[in-house]
C-alpha cells in the first residue's frame, strides 16, 4: 500500500495523542489505535518502514510509540 499515505495517517494519529499530558499514555494510545483499526498488512508495512532507513517521515512520537509497543503491532498469524 502507499507508504507515504500510511506515514501520513500514522502522523495524524500521532498529532492527536501529542496533547495527552502523560507521555506513556500517549504512546500507548498511538500504538493501541493502530492496533485496533489498521489491517495487518498496513501494520506490517508500517513496521517495515520503521525498521528501514526510510522512517524519517514519521513524527518522533509515532516512531517512539511504534518502537515501544512493537510487539502489540505485529500481525497475529
Amino acid at each position: 500500500m502507499d507508504m507515504e499515505n500510511l506515514i501520513h495517517m500514522a502522523n495524524k494519529i500521532g498529532e492527536f495523542f501529542e496533547s495527552v499530558p502523560d507521555r506513556e499514555e500517549a504512546l500507548l494510545g498511538i500504538s493501541g489505535h493502530i492496533h485496533n483499526f489498521w489491517a495487518p498488512r498496513m501494520r506490517s508495512q508500517l513496521l517495515e518502514c520503521v525498521d528501514s532507513a526510510n522512517s524519517e517521515g514519521l513524527k518522533p512520537i509515532v516512531l517512539e510509540a511504534i518502537r515501544a509497543h512493537r510487539n502489540n503491532l505485529l500481525p497475529r498469524h
Binding site: 500500500m1 502507499d2 499515505n5 485496533n36 483499526f37 489491517a39 497475529r76
Partner: peptide, 16 residues
C-alpha cells in the same frame, strides 16, 4: 482476530 480493511484502505490495497 485482526481488523480488516476500511473502504479507503481497500482502494489503496487494490492499487497496490
Amino acid at each position: 482476530p485482526e481488523p480488516g480493511l476500511r473502504i479507503p484502505n481497500m482502494f489503496d490495497a487494490a492499487l497496490d
